[in-house]
């Protein structure tokens, strides 16, 4: 399923980040994507499913959550090292990355959600 990924700030995630960027709580709050209920249902994605998000820039596995509000075609992700896997490294002449308007696909996966340590290992590989 094609979606436009938009990142946002979440107060609970910010609190978890203040306390421990390597902790399970921060991962739980960050490695997540909020999908429209109807979109998710059409794509066979359930609340709590692991999903693979892929953009032209990269891919990442996170947990799907279904939003109360309707937002067809949009996928909301808390801004984090997980969402940053999808953000293009190439920028326009402003040199400001495009954090809030990313074309991506999303599908159910049996792969696990990476830890911060996994992301760091890939960073230096």
């Amino acid at each position: 399923m094609k979606v436009t990924v938009v990142t946002f700030r979440d107060i609970f995630q910010s609190e978890a980040q203040e306390l421990d960027r390597f902790g399970e709580e921060y991962r739980k709050m960050s490695a997540v994507v909020f999908l429209d209920k109807n979109d998710a249902s059409k794509a066979g994605i359930k609340d709590g499913s692991n999903v693979l998000l892929e953009s032209d820039n990269g891919r990442v596995v996170v947990v799907a959550r279904l939003s109360e509000d309707s937002h067809p075609g949009l996928a909301f992700m808390p801004n984090s090292p997980w969402s940053n896997r999808l953000i293009p490294a190439e920028t326009d002449e402003t040199k400001i990355p495009s954090f809030k308007n990313i074309s991506a696909t999303v599908r159910v996966t049996s792969d696990g959600v990476p830890t911060v340590e996994d992301l760091l290992r890939e960073m230096v590989s």
Binding site: R21, N57, G58, N79, S80, P81, N84, R85, I87, P88, A89, E90, P97, F99, L119, L120, M123, V124
Partner: peptide, 14 residues
């Protein structure tokens, strides 16, 4: 910045 930059740029910084 390794957390907050797009991964491709963070990788260059790393």
């Amino acid at each position: 910045p390794i957390s907050s930059l797009p991964a491709g740029i963070a990788k260059a910084l790393a």
